[in-house]
Amino acid sequence: MNGAEMSNCPYRERRTLFEDLLTDHGLTAPWTLCPMTTDLAKAREWLESWTHVSGVEGIVPKVWC
């Protein structure tokens, strides 16, 4: 990274870099990494069970082409 523009990089690459950044620097709240899954069953579980979790504002589905 080191100041490099990352917006044109694939999401998965940016996500990995962000995960590493949080881990490497021991960042905690208010910095947090939202959970992510490509597993449809897990996404359905989240839709059904996370509707009453404090601090969860919603779920953002994304379609990968």
Results as ranks from 00 to 15, higher is better:
residue 1 M to Y: 15
residue 2 N to E: 15
residue 4 A to L: 15
residue 5 E to N: 14
residue 6 M to N: 15
residue 9 C to S: 14
residue 10 P to F: 00
residue 10 P to V: 14
residue 11 Y to C: 11
residue 12 R to N: 06
residue 13 E to A: 10
residue 13 E to H: 03
residue 13 E to W: 08
residue 14 R to T: 09
residue 14 R to P: 08
residue 15 R to G: 00
residue 16 T to W: 08
residue 16 T to G: 02
residue 17 L to S: 07
residue 17 L to D: 02
residue 17 L to E: 09
residue 19 E to H: 07
residue 20 D to M: 10
residue 21 L to R: 03
residue 23 T to V: 03
residue 23 T to I: 13
residue 24 D to V: 02
residue 24 D to W: 09
residue 25 H to E: 07
residue 26 G to S: 07
residue 26 G to K: 12
residue 27 L to M: 11
residue 28 T to S: 10
residue 30 P to K: 01
residue 30 P to C: 00
residue 30 P to F: 04
residue 30 P to H: 04
residue 32 T to P: 00
residue 33 L to Q: 09
residue 33 L to R: 13
residue 34 C to W: 15
residue 37 T to A: 02
residue 37 T to Q: 00
residue 38 T to W: 08
residue 39 D to N: 10
residue 40 L to N: 05
residue 42 K to Q: 05
residue 43 A to C: 02
residue 44 R to H: 05
residue 45 E to D: 08
residue 46 W to N: 03
residue 47 L to M: 07
residue 47 L to W: 04
residue 47 L to K: 05
residue 47 L to Q: 06
residue 48 E to S: 06
residue 48 E to M: 05
residue 48 E to H: 05
residue 49 S to R: 08
residue 51 T to Y: 07
residue 53 V to K: 13
residue 53 V to L: 13
residue 54 S to E: 13
residue 56 V to E: 03
residue 56 V to H: 03
residue 57 E to I: 12
residue 59 I to M: 14
residue 60 V to Y: 08
residue 60 V to D: 05
residue 61 P to F: 01
residue 62 K to R: 11
residue 62 K to A: 13
residue 62 K to N: 04
residue 62 K to E: 07
